[in-house]
Simulated assay, not measured.
Amino acid sequence: MLISESKLRKFTLDIFMAMGCSEDHATLAADVLLRSDLRGIDSHGVARLSGYVRLWEKQRINTQPDIKIVHESYTTATIDGDAGLGLVVAPFAMQVAIQKAEKYGSGWVSVRNSNHFGIAGYHALMAVEQDMIGFAMTNASPLVAPTFSSERLLGTNPMCYAFPAGKYPPVVVDMATSAAANGKLEIAQRAGKQVPEGWLQDNAGNFTTDPFALKSGGALLPLGSDKEHGSHKGFGLSATVDILSGVLSGAGYGPWVPPFVAFLEPPANPPGKGIGHFLGAMRVDGFRPAEEYKADMDNWIARFKSAPTIDADKKVIIPGEPELEAEIDRIKNGIPLVDAVVNDLNELALKFGIDTL
């Protein structure tokens, strides 16, 4: 089913308003989710909306948070999100990072006591709009087993780096540090399909293609799949995200990060508060004149795009290109939603007394 951006945006805004968000917060939260759907990252868009509602019903999301800086220096800050929507808390934090970068050249902000913040790319691209390099990462509920382990200790822990360019679109490296994002399992579950080997292990540590394996004690694998294919590198990247997002900020970390699903209770006696994020912004002209940098970025992009390929039907894909192509198409033609997501959203509409899709 194809739904126009405007219709889906209003629907999402109405749901957040019905949850008690201010109009400003509801508008921002809807924008973060819609940007995900527009960019083709269907796992983190409106398909997540019912998850936020269930957490709010469990009083684990505060729709009227007092988001504030609790510690700072000239170039750094720590923010307490007051259990607010990460979709609102993370943009607040990035604005702080940008303001510090404007004055001092760079800004770095850690966040505690937050919730799921949507796609990392949304927040990193806020810096790009100001001619800055943007960084965004977050820890997440433990679904990933470290190399050689059967215990789920890390989240999918995404990280994003966004680099402005000149005549070309920005280079956006937005990825999970696990072999696959949990949202891709949800997509496979809704479609009734198996997942590729190397994404998951069962509770005995063996490869499985069952997208429901997490429900029977299995685990996602780090980026690299297993030790023979470099999973220790994915483990290291995920650990970096967890430490910067959780340990540095005073948020939960490792097995103490609260689950996104409402039917699971948060871990007892956590060492920190909620989910953690880490965001940063660096002024390009703090290193060299911005126009010189952009000229070299354009040259970098052009050179990589011109690289010969093994398959004549393939091309070198610059990070961020597929998402931009999806955004252009979906703004024009609408956002595709599978029946399971449409049904889920229409149930929310009936719950809150708003128009169905």
Rank of each mutant, 00 (worst) to 15 (best):
M1F: 07
L2P: 01
S6N: 15
K10C: 09
K10A: 13
F11C: 12
T12K: 09
L13I: 07
I15G: 07
M17P: 00
M19A: 10
E23L: 12
D24M: 14
H25K: 06
A26I: 08
A30P: 08
A30E: 05
D31F: 03
L38M: 12
S43H: 11
V46Y: 15
A47S: 15
A47L: 00
L55F: 03
I61W: 14
I69K: 07
I69Y: 01
V70F: 09
H71W: 09
E72F: 00
I79M: 00
G81R: 10
A83Y: 06
G84N: 09
L87G: 12
L87R: 13
P91Q: 08
M94W: 04
A97I: 06
Y104D: 00
Y104F: 15
G105W: 03
V109L: 11
N115F: 04
H116F: 13
F117H: 13
G118P: 02
A120L: 07
Y122V: 09
H123Q: 08
M126I: 01
M126C: 03
Q130A: 05
M132G: 01
G134T: 01
G134A: 12
F135D: 00
N139S: 08
L143K: 13
V144K: 03
P146C: 04
P146E: 06
G155L: 06
P158R: 10
Y161F: 15
Y161D: 03
A165Q: 05
A165I: 14
G166C: 06
P169N: 13
P170I: 05
V172G: 03
D174K: 02
A181P: 05
A181T: 07
G183H: 11
G183I: 06
Q189M: 10
G192C: 01
K193S: 14
V195L: 12
P196C: 12
L200S: 10
L200G: 11
F207P: 12
F212D: 12
G217R: 09
P222L: 06
G224W: 12
K227T: 03
E228P: 00
L237A: 06
T240W: 08
T240Y: 02
I243V: 15
G246R: 02
V247D: 01
G254P: 05
G254W: 09
P255S: 11
W256R: 00
P258I: 11
P258H: 09
A262L: 05
P267N: 05
G276Y: 04
F278I: 10
R283K: 15
A290R: 14
E292W: 07
D296L: 13
M297F: 03
W300I: 15
S306D: 15
I310F: 07
A312G: 02
D313M: 13
V316C: 05
I318P: 02
G320W: 04
E321A: 14
L324W: 09
I328P: 13
R330S: 07
N333V: 03
G334D: 07
L337I: 00
V342H: 05
N343Q: 14
L345T: 02
N346V: 02
E347W: 03
E347Q: 15
L348R: 10
A349S: 14
G353D: 12
I354W: 03
T356D: 04
L357V: 01
